[in-house]
Design a protein around this nucleic acid. Structure first.
Lengths: 219, 219, 219, 219
DNA sequence: GATGAATGAGGTTTCATTCAT
DNA sequence: GATGAATGAAACCTCATTCAT
């Protein structure tokens, strides 16, 4: 890894820390630079705008997630499709716990992506994000997770481990939503996670995965 | 309703519209005032800061939700506890679809509430919100929905309609998370809702409610 | 004149002073605000950008020039066309001496106006100027001086005072260029005017007007 | 020409191109370096500051102009003084058309030169220019053109070709101003030259030279 | 000598909030 | 009470200049 890449990583690490702590809108580039141990100018040298920096982080998060999912499936080659699906979900839960900022970023990305032609105001942020060089890069890989999950569900149909005949997307999105929602309910600025109404994380995770398993096997 | 209250409501309505359209951070008090058909000074006369205005909206949302839930239960007095729970969930789904901003606001409130002592920076937002006169008012009523749900589950245990013996909170939070997550996955700035990966809203709602029913009846 | 107009004028006066002293590019909005005895925010309240402020000044200059020219012609109704032309030129010379910044601004305006589709870089200034609300207003009145001059020359043809049968524009533009050029040769940042190579201003003015007179009468 | 000189020339050529395209204030050293096919560091190695680079260009322009004027007079040794003067003017017109940036630079130089002690602010530019090593060099040769012209006029007096007995400077400065002014009226950023109010360049040049000839012969 | 990453002062613009009318 | 002009603290971003490699 060249010096250039190292410094880029330093900036990304610093930015993640800052964005996670105070949120994108409240984060100052100055703070990011300070956290990275360098000057504002350098941050702008490597990333050209605040939005671009955010998109770079989003890209990193998407890559990380895809990487984890591929890795997970690699370990489930010999297992049933159902096991693969559950493995992917567990991977996602862990990812969401470890990198809440990435989840936030990916949700923001989806929102931007969805709003084809947003209103007259507040569109500047959206515009700036779309102009980022990372925007397209993310486009290219954003559908990998859902494709993998759908693939595993279909594999489960063939090997008999998945009996639920609803659309794969229906199954997966519900699971996805549950995880995202749980994160939202228990996270403050992505930083502080806590017990919610007497339910601990481990307990919840076990319950949800069991629920998903039941769902898959439900005829 | 006196003139004062009328103007307050006009401001709240306008603020909701604006916050929903561009998000709290990007919203300008000027825009809110314009949308409300009055001057910035008036907005500050009735609400003392942007954060306070947001907390007022949050309070309004909380009241609305509680109202709907009470109303729902009133219609389920003769029904089983399970039916009551499902009714509450359906109420919440509809509430989330009709007032995504309220959901957002309530999540923000929970986040602020949770972060006991946030970091040295970025604490300003949090601080300002906690100083709002509405903050305590919300505190007092924030647990009503979950209490009602837990109550219905316990009633279901007694009348035999709920067989799942997991902690009531576990059941309810999972359902809650699923709904919140789905909203996050399909909403951009609270404004544009769309179909996600071929799954329509009605289809999804039916599926989720069925899933919840199965969960409750699962021994 | 309402309070609003008064403050606008105060800002314009201050801005003229600052722009004339250091040039548009080197002028700071802060300095303008200070010179006007108010805050930066106020300057932005009345004029929305630095470019817009400059265009407002340009518009003011154009209005001033037109006003002086109309006034001049009003005093020459009984005179020959040739006298009218000379009057207009004298008016312009005096205008140029009294308000060198206006000349500068008008030249800038013409340059922006001319560069229909400027190059890829440095076009931002141009773009910002064209977006000013004053840009169109100037468009509408920019041709008045030359029209008046051409009109006087044609009147001179009829009354026999102008014998030069070249295109009126040729006569006028040459005169115009001479004045503009002289200003350029003797002005530093529009502020300091001095004697150039032993030739005083009065001497030069007399000579140039005589030259123009000769030109008009030249068959 | 050594390698050093070659690189200097490459930088000067690039800088001229850039300054002409976007103007000195808007030009970036980065762009200059890129246009010259080398790094910013190199540009700073050969020229020590942006202002110094501009002064180097100014010096180059002054040299070029003087060279052209000497060359012109060399071809007019056998001709009358009047012919010499007209020749010099034609040389200057062509020079102005071919190198508008040089004209701009020379005017800037004169302005700096004139403002003995400019105001408290905005003096930085001026100061930086005066500190350039080229500043003095230009001082030494800046009066050559006007001296040559005055010389030719005086020669014209002797040989009878110039009958106008006004101060030579008066004659020459008026011609000079006309040319400079015309350039200002028809040039945008030194790049785009266009027809002004139906008057083409050739037509104008012919007219102006004739006008000058008449002036010289006018008793 | 050449390079280009690093710096940081400085500039424009925004917007929550205040307050005189 | 209502208004909207005024304020000024930030925040983003630029770019001339430096300097280690």
């Amino acid at each position: 890894m060249g010096k250039r890449e190292i410094r880029q990583v330093m900036i990304l690490d610093a930015a993640e820390k800052v964005f996670e702590a105070v949120g994108f809108a409240n984060a100052k580039m100055e703070t990011v630079a300070g956290e990275a141990g360098m000057s504002k100018g350098s941050v702008y040298f490597y990333f050209q705008s605040k939005e671009n920096l955010y998109m770079a982080i989003t890209y990193r998060g998407m890559q990380k997630l895809n990487d984890l999912m591929y890795r997970c499936l690699a370990g489930h080659k010999e297992n049933t499709g159902a096991a693969g699906v559950i493995g992917l979900l567990e991977t996602y839960i862990d990812f969401a716990e470890d990198f809440p900022l990435y989840i936030e970023a990916l949700l923001d990305y989806m929102a931007v992506n969805r709003s084809a032609a947003s209103g007259p105001d507040g569109a500047k942020l959206t515009e700036a994000m779309r102009e980022s060089i990372y925007y397209q890069k993310i486009q290219d890989i954003q559908n990998i997770p859902i494709s993998l999950a759908v693939g595993e569900i279909e594999r489960g149909w063939l090997d008999g481990s998945v009996k639920n005949k609803n659309k794969p997307e229906l199954l997966f999105i519900t699971a996805w939503a549950t995880i995202v929602g749980y994160l939202k309910l228990t996270t403050a600025s992505g930083k502080h996670r806590s017990t919610l109404h007497k339910i601990g994380r481990t307990e919840w995770k076990k319950y949800v995965l069991q629920l998903m398993k039941d769902q898959l096997e439900h005829p």
